[in-house]
Design a binder for these strands. Structure first.
Lengths: 341, 341
DNA sequence: TTGAAAGCGGTACCAC
DNA sequence: GTGGTACCGCTTTCAA
């Protein structure tokens, strides 16, 4: 709009008043400070006319607040995270907060580095999917009174607010659903990961299998797969080397994509030869031929809980209570699973 | 780590030296300023010991630079954008820059608001997929010497660096490919949008059709579709109300997803009854049954060109030259298109 | 009701 | 080789 940056000083000089007065008016403290109506109007008009905007840096340097929340996830290009990101951004916006995204790539060093960086930028709060080894950093954050809320997974040893889903319960139910469909030999495909959400999913599967007196068949993909095909090949080997498998239950949707790719190569007939179920629904599952059954996480609710939680911490005065939220998932039944008995 | 924030002053006091010296050492100007080795070592050790990190806000308030680049796209949850985001983040990181993402949702007001906000945070550069109506804002940015680079689309009336792809050429070739496959009645499904990339794609299609003496059949989806099904139904109507259509060419992948969904409902046989081609490849196209042919944009090259361009502007002294880059796409032939003649 | 001035935590110019 | 100190632009006492 205008040419050069205009500061509060310029306005003061131009209007012949002090910067203090302007600051009060801009920050809505005019009434409180009993500034005259005339003065208020003069300043407001001028501010609007020149399109003045206070410099955020200076503001937050002085106030220690920045109205910025960091949204730190494992991988922002993962649709689960980017969808939540969008919802959060929207709500944050309404409350006058900005969101800064970043991806940790599950690398604790990178995560720590990012947290340090953002602390130095005076961000007010953090929404984090913690990587392993972030425990100390989170504790520090908490002790420094930053607003922090974890999601997707959490850290048992740290008393920190979090929003997660019923991983264990849903996987238990999902497994039981496959069993009810007549499957006996069910393979659970997961990542070799100690993250709580992965462990809980695995454990839900195992409990269900055990309860029904079935043998657990777990395929763990090493965390860093160089190529997507790699896992595809491995799972083919796994299936071939095991007695006929009735169903495969994937612990995340991207594992399912790799698996489906592999099944394509093997020319397996779904669901006739193999039933397929995946954790974490994805719109492609509805488009896939056949459509793939999945356990859908309540994206909107997660986003809402996160924002409520963090805003609560941000506004709340010394509300030390830790907020632990666990949301329910929904089993979406589609073509890849069906009752044979 | 430590308890309270430690500032350069604390270090000065503790070590009994001036903050100036410390500042020099921290900023690698020790040699230049001929600070003694002993002093350097003392300071560096102490800094490492207490884990001191300069406050970025203060730094950038003073220097006017922030080492931050804004990556402003239409929708960060769109995989095309989020994939580029990741690549860019990686490269930026190596050059000591941080990336801040945000989505405009194609809303010029929101975009302007965001740009204003970031200007006030002293960001150094902007990577933008411009919405319509952003012309003035971009011009201002340029005149204020911010580093700016547009991508995906551009603004003809503004002399601004940009990285785009050969939309017209690729769509011309894609259309011709369908024609060579024996298709005559080819529908081009696009958005009702004046954005350059959409216009160019449409125009490529039209030229090809015209050259081969075929009639252009264009279906334009109104920009804001309330539900994904909406367009699906509309395209079914469109196809039904037209003489037998041989092929559908989608201008973006999400349009293709909607379309494929509709074709599913119609029980159309692909490619026998209908050949399908889409602009902007997506990993799901390879998984779909049948796999979907697509025009793949060179993601890595785009990301690389963007970073090169912006870093060039950031480092370059008065390099007023505008950088216009147009990259080539690749036609990926899959099961949804095949030669019938 | 308004204004002066002291910071916030650095950087950079200029002395010593 | 080091140190003093005037800013950067704003918020926030405290005085007037």
């Amino acid at each position: 709009m205008t040419k050069k940056k205009i500061s509060i000083k310029d306005i003061a000089k131009e209007l012949g008043i002090s910067i203090t007065t302007i600051s009060f008016i801009i920050n809505g403290k005019a009434k409180e400070k009993r500034i005259s109506e005339t003065m208020i109007k003069t300043v407001e008009d001028y501010v609007a006319k020149v399109g003045y905007r206070p410099n955020y840096l200076a503001q937050s340097l002085r106030s220690g607040k920045s109205k910025v929340i960091v949204f730190m996830v494992e991988d922002i290009s993962n649709s689960f995270f980017s969808n939540i990101a969008r919802l959060i951004e929207e709500r944050a916006y309404k409350s006058g907060y900005k969101i800064i995204y970043c991806s940790t790539e599950n690398d604790a060093d990178k995560a720590i580095e990012l947290i340090q960086t953002f602390k130095n930028r005076n961000v007010d709060g953090f929404i984090i999917t913690p990587t392993l080894g972030l425990e100390g950093e989170i504790k520090t954050l908490l002790s420094e009174n930053f607003a922090v809320i974890l999601f997707d997974r959490w850290i048992p040893s740290v008393e920190c607010s979090h929003v997660i889903v019923e991983n264990e319960k849903s996987c238990y139910e999902g497994t039981e659903y496959l069993i009810q469909n007549g499957c006996k030999r069910i393979v659970f495909v997961t990542l070799e990961s100690e993250q709580t959400q992965m462990q809980d999913r695995l454990s839900g599967y195992k409990s269900a299998m055990k309860k029904h007196g079935l043998e657990s068949l777990v395929f763990e993909e090493p965390f860093h797969t160089s190529s997507p095909d790699f896992m595809g090949d491995q799972i083919i080997d796994f299936l071939k080397s095991h007695e006929k498998v009735d169903a495969v239950f994937f612990a995340t949707n991207y594992l399912a994509f790799e698996g489906l790719h592999a099944f394509r190569k093997m020319e397996v007939l779904i669901p006739e030869d193999l039933q397929v179920l995946s954790f974490d629904d994805h719109f492609f599952f509805g488009l896939h031929q056949p459509s793939i059954s999945a356990i859908a996480q309540p994206i909107e609710q997660i986003a809402e809980s996160l924002m409520n939680g963090i805003l609560h911490q941000l506004n709340g005065v010394e509300s030390t209570e830790v907020m632990k939220i666990e949301l329910s998932n929904k089993l979406v039944k589609r073509g890849s699973t069906f009752r044979t008995v």
